[in-house]
Simulated assay, not measured.
Amino acid sequence: MIKNKFLLISFIMVLIIGCSANVLAVEKLELVAAHNQTSKESPYQVGMLKFKEACEDLSDGAITVQVHAGTLGTSESELVEKLKLGAADVVIVSPGFMSKTGIKQIQLFAFPYLFNDYNHWGKVVDGVVGSKIANIVNEKSHNDFKVLGYWSAGVRHYYGKKPLHNMADLEGMKIRTQTSGVVADFWSSIGAVPTSVAWGELYQALQQGVVDGAENAYPFFVQESHHKTRNGKFTTETGHDYTTRFMLINGSKFDSLSAEQQEIIEKAAKISIDAEREEVRNQETQYKQVLLDEGGKVNEIDRQPFIEAAMPIQDKAAAQYGVEDLLQMIRDLR
C-alpha cells in the first residue's frame, strides 16, 4: 500500500514537472497588434481577437497580445511606419499602402479584376504566388516586414450618389480610392477622378459632397453607415477587387524570438486568417441585407466592359513592376 502510494505520488510529480517544463519553454512576450478599422464588429477585429486568443492559449498565457482597433491610427501608412519603428508588432495593411514603402511588386494584388472569385483568390494567395510575394516583401524591406499570411477584406463594389448602369456614368465622378498606382490608373481610365480621403473622414466627405462616391466591401462601408450619407445611398456591384490584406510582423523582432515563440505566432496567425476570412464571407451577406433594410439601393451591372478596360492596365503595371511572370501565373490559375 505504501509502495503504491509512493509510486502514485512520484507519477503525479513527474506530470507536474513535465507540464511546468512545457510552460517554461515559452518565454514571456507581449505583442501589440493593430488595424485601422474603428468598428468593433469589423472582420479585422474578429481576426485580431482570434490571433490574441490563439497566442495566449497555445503559450499557456506566456505570450499576450494587445489589440488596437483604429487606436494606433486609422491610416495604414501610419501603421506601417509604427511597425517599422517597433511601436507595433503585428499590423494589417493593404497592398496599395505597402507599396509606398518602395516595394512596388506587391501592387500586383491590387490589380482591378485580377481574380474571378474567392476560389481563384485563395489558390493564388495560399500558393506559389503568395509565397513569392511574401519573400519579396521580406527581402525588399530588409527584414522590416515579414508576411504572416493573407487576410481578405471582401469583394469591393462602387457606392455613391447615383447608381451605375454603364461605364459612362462614372465620367467626372470624384471617387474615394487610391490616388496613385494601378488602382488610380484604372479608375482614371474609365472616367472617374480618384480622390484621397482618410478612412476615418470618409463618412463626412460623403455626407458633405466632398466626394461623389467610394468603393469598398459591404462589411466595411455599411458598418460605418456610409450608405446613409448623401452620396453613399446607391451601391452598384462592380466586384472589381477580391481584396488582399497583408498580416505583417516586424521581421527583425520575429527573428529575435525563440523557436517556440515563432512557432506559436505562426500557428496563431493561421488560425486568425481562417477566422477572419470566414467572418468576411458571413458579413458580406449580413451587411448587404442591413443596407437594403435601411433604405440603401443595390443594382448589378455588366462587368465585362470593366474587365476589358482593366486588362491593359494590368499588363502595363506588371511590366512596370517586373511581375509579368506572376501575373501570368495568376491568370493560368483561373
Rank of each mutant, 00 (worst) to 15 (best):
C55S: 09
E56D: 05
E56N: 12
E56C: 01
D57S: 14
D57A: 12
D57Y: 15
D57W: 10
L58G: 05
L58D: 03
S59P: 13
S59I: 13
D60Q: 11
D60T: 08
G61A: 02
I63N: 06
I63R: 01
T64G: 03
T64R: 07
V65I: 10
V65T: 11
V65A: 01
V65M: 04
V65Q: 03
V65S: 02
Q66A: 04
Q66D: 11
Q66W: 00
Q66I: 01
V67C: 08
V67G: 09
V67P: 15
H68M: 11
H68C: 08
H68W: 08
H68Y: 12
A69F: 06
A69C: 05
A69I: 01
G70Y: 00
G70Q: 08
G70A: 09
G70H: 09
T71Y: 07
T71N: 11
T71M: 03
T71G: 01
T71E: 13
L72E: 11
G73V: 05
G73M: 04
G73W: 03
G73Q: 07
T74Q: 05
S75Y: 04
E76D: 15
E76Y: 14
S77P: 00
S77R: 10
S77T: 06
E78K: 05
E78P: 00
E78F: 00
E78W: 01
L79F: 02
L79V: 02
L79N: 01
V80N: 09
V80D: 12
V80T: 09
V80R: 06
E81W: 05
K82I: 03
K82F: 04
L83R: 00
L83A: 03
L83G: 08
L83M: 07
L83Q: 03
K84D: 15
K84V: 10
K84H: 09
K84T: 15
K84F: 05
L85E: 11
G86R: 02
A87F: 08
A87Q: 13
D89A: 07
D89I: 06
D89G: 05
D89N: 14
V90A: 07
V90L: 10
V91P: 00
V91F: 07
I92V: 14
I92H: 04
I92E: 02
I92N: 06
V93K: 11
V93N: 12
S94Q: 14
G96W: 10
G96K: 10
M98P: 14
S99D: 13
S99C: 05
K100A: 08
K100S: 11
T101F: 12
T101C: 13
G102P: 12
G102E: 04
G102A: 04
G102S: 06
G102V: 03
I103N: 03
K104A: 11
K104H: 08
K104D: 04
Q105Y: 07
Q105V: 01
Q105R: 13
Q105F: 00
Q105G: 02
I106E: 12
I106P: 14
I106H: 09
Q107Y: 08
Q107W: 02
Q107I: 01
Q107K: 09
